[in-house]
């Protein structure tokens, strides 16, 4: 049974001069329950639009998106491209507000500790660096125990060691409590390190060019050589994706 069934025939935006710009055309994706998918494609190709459609923020399109029937209303954790924290609420309040009423708040402090944010948990977001704000946004998405986790280039502007740490943390959380993840990135190495399956998307109108399973076992994902080797073989065997990177 698939967790998410996406079938978007047509999505257009009204551009300048009343021209219809087609953003997505004939996009069919099927995500298995608890699958980790990375969407790879050039920037500006409409990946954020796709995530917005899945999150239910945009219903102005032709086609349909079906979320798994197991949950009547699946909880969604969404890490936007910019952190989107409420500037007038503290770090901790920002995370707590995303939780449904009566939800346990104890795990939040553990997460804040893990991502080294304990010192700033009572500060307002304007006092944080962009990297810190991003980590807060990531915790907010995890804190709701999402059935579906949408991540829109969440690790951009994190320094490489922090990015690696958050990546490992993301995977360990995902293994502890499996959920379906849609992760947008344009970094192929990052995508290979994280995903069960890579989906390559083309630029306007966006559509799926190829879908490739990543056969590297989870235990070897930290091995940079294995990832680099897989990347090279990908580029050799799939010439169609070269232009998308």
């Amino acid at each position: 049974m698939s967790a998410i069934q996406i079938n978007i025939a047509n999505k257009t935006f009204l551009g300048d001069g009343r021209v219809q710009n087609q953003t997505i055309a004939n996009l069919q994706l099927s995500l298995a329950e608890h699958e980790f998918i990375c969407l790879v494609g050039p920037s500006g190709c409409g990946k954020s639009t796709l995530l917005n459609i899945i999150a239910g923020l945009d219903d102005d399109f032709e086609g349909e998106v079906t979320l798994s029937q197991r949950h009547r209303k699946p909880s969604i954790g969404y890490v936007f491209q910019n952190p989107r924290l409420l500037p007038w609420r503290t770090v901790r309040e920002n995370i707590l507000l995303a939780l449904p009423d009566g939800y346990p708040s104890a795990p939040i402090d553990v997460m804040l500790e893990t991502l080294q944010l304990t010192d700033v948990k009572d500060d307002y977001p304007e006092r944080l660096s962009l990297g810190m704000s991003r980590r807060v946004a990531i915790i907010r998405a995890f804190a709701v125990n999402p059935d579906i986790l949408l991540m829109d280039e969440p690790f951009v502007s994190l320094d490489p060691p922090t990015a690696r740490q958050v990546r490992q943390w993301l995977i360990s959380l995902w293994q502890q409590r499996p959920h379906t993840v849609l992760f947008v990135t344009h970094d192929l190495r990052e995508a290979i390190a994280l995903a069960d399956r890579l989906i390559f998307l083309s630029k306007s109108p966006m559509t799926a060019v190829s879908e490739i399973k990543v056969p590297i076992p989870r235990s070897e994902r930290d091995d940079e050589k294995a990832i680099e080797a897989f990347r090279q073989s990908l580029l050799e065997n799939h010439p169609e994706i070269r232009s998308l990177l």
Binding site: N52, A55, G56, L57, K73, S75, I76, Y78, F80, N82, R84, L86, L97, A98, P100, R140, V144
Partner: peptide, 12 residues
């Protein structure tokens, strides 16, 4: 609008 979208996606 960004913040309103955030609120909507987290079912505020």
């Amino acid at each position: 609008r960004d913040l309103l979208e955030m609120a909507k996606s987290y079912h505020f």
